[in-house]
């Protein structure tokens, strides 16, 4: 289909969204990600029965943790897509990228000096 989506996304493939752990998500933020989304299969369609449901719970937990440590839970999200939903995937990536642009760089990158706040942005 040759769909276009922003190039600043790094895709990490896993056998099932249920493989994604709280630690993977936190580590991504430690290493400088500004936002992370988990894309799993449609609910009810998991090959491993409940992998995507576990992923959903973990993403929820990471949202709480990010809120508690000052990064903001909106930097992480979970989406459910089937393999036939390429256009929607591209759309989600565009939406998430837009949202992260609005949020600005992660406070971790700012603290580490690998990013600066855009002009006019207020320190959290």
């Amino acid at each position: 289909m040759r769909l276009q989506y922003p190039p600043n996304v790094r895709i990490i493939e896993v056998p099932c969204s249920g493989k994604v752990d709280i630690l993977h998500l936190l580590l991504a933020f430690e290493q400088g990600a500004d936002g992370v989304i988990v894309v799993g299969c449609m609910e009810g369609d998991c090959h491993y029965l409940a992998g995507n449901l576990f992923a959903k719970k973990r993403v929820q937990r990471v949202k709480e943790i990010l809120d508690q440590v000052g990064l903001g839970g909106e930097r992480v999200g979970m989406y459910n897509l089937s393999s036939g939903m390429g256009p929607r995937f591209a759309e989600i990536i565009r939406e998430m990228t837009q949202k992260i642009m609005e949020l600005g760089p992660s406070p971790i990158r700012i603290a580490k000096g690998t990013a600066v706040r855009a002009a006019g942005e207020v320190a959290a």
Partner: peptide
Amino acid sequence: AKVLAAALRLYFTQGG
């Protein structure tokens, strides 16, 4: 322990 440590590292780092 790993999750808590990662969360605390994020906490400290974001606070500079």
